[in-house]
Simulated scan of single mutants.
Amino acid sequence: MSASINPNGNLKGKVALVTGASRGIGEAIAARLAMEGAKVVVSARTAQDGESRLPGTLMETVERIKKAGGEATFIKADLAQSIERERLVEEAVATYGPIDILINNAAITYFTPVVEFTEKRFKLMMEVQVYAPFHLSQLVLPSMIERKTGHIVNISSPAGIHPAKPYRGGRGGTVYGLCKAALERFSTGLASEVYADNIAVNVVSPGLVDTPGVAVHGLINEQSKDRVQPIEFIAEAVYQLASGDPKTLTGRVDYAEPLLKELNLKPSELV
């Protein structure tokens, strides 16, 4: 059975905001949520061709969803800026209504040893990968709490796990790991805070996925190629945590494939 949009799916009437959705994992997540009937707002810094050296744009993500019969719109925003985050949520709500699902996927990453890491780059990574998810959650939570419903899914990485011994040196991923570890601790803490409000907060850790961002950092090589995971696994895991029972599926830090095995599910083909 080929992939399609189900306007009467599990997310009918829901509004989803997905950051970092011009390409890669964010684009796949947006498509998967749209397949279940969600109205999807996608955001990133790249809206149209020529705005990034990487392939993929917000316009293309929206066209992909609309061509399949789904509903989506894009809002270009720089999540390193507080005023831009506020504008993003304001415009998303003005377009489709209160946010039911927030997917914090946007990231900016530099792989540089600590001894060489500049303050400017450190602060930018912390702003986009840690404070932006925190701030966006603050912006959508009042409505979720008032309505006693909501799902937040933050995208992490195995880099958040402590390095294993014996140490063999790294490739400058210490700050990236720091950001992801902070994001995971924020997620579990928030899950505890809003549990009584029927709001789920979870983390999906994708592992290694063949995306334009991964390619530009050269993360797939002869040693790592066997660990590459289809992007459909990530999109499916996020969908399951963005639609599950907030009383039983919350406060989790999950790797995509083990989660799907636990739920006895196979990833859906994407539109």
Rank of each mutant, 00 (worst) to 15 (best):
Asn198Ala: 12
Ile161Trp: 04
Met125Asn: 03
Glu184Ala: 11
Ala200Met: 05
Val130Gly: 02
Val140Phe: 05
Val130Phe: 12
Gly177Asn: 00
Cys179Gly: 07
Val140Ser: 04
Thr149Gly: 11
Asn198His: 14
Lys148Cys: 10
Leu124Thr: 14
Phe134Asp: 06
Met126Ala: 15
Ala200Glu: 02
Val153Met: 03
Gly160Pro: 03
Glu119Gly: 10
His162Tyr: 14
Arg171Val: 15
Pro163Lys: 08
Val204Glu: 01
Gly213Ile: 09
Ser156Thr: 04
Gly213Ser: 10
His217Asp: 14
Val201Asp: 02
Val204Gln: 00
Glu146Ser: 12
His217Lys: 13
Val114His: 11
Asn202Ser: 15
Leu178His: 06
Val201Ala: 03
Val114Met: 15
Gly218Tyr: 06
Val130His: 00
Ala159Cys: 13
Leu183Tyr: 04
Glu127Val: 10
Ile145Asn: 08
Val114Glu: 10
His151Gln: 09
Ala181Val: 06
Ile220Cys: 10
Leu219His: 06
Lys120Gln: 12
Leu178Asp: 03
Gln138Phe: 15
Asn154Gln: 09
Leu219Glu: 10
Val209Glu: 01
Ile155Asp: 00
Thr174Ala: 15
Leu139Gly: 02
Val175Glu: 01
Val201Tyr: 01
Gly207Glu: 00
Met125Cys: 08
Gly172Val: 01
His135Val: 09
Leu141Ile: 15
Asn202Asp: 14
Ala215Asn: 11
Gly173Asp: 14
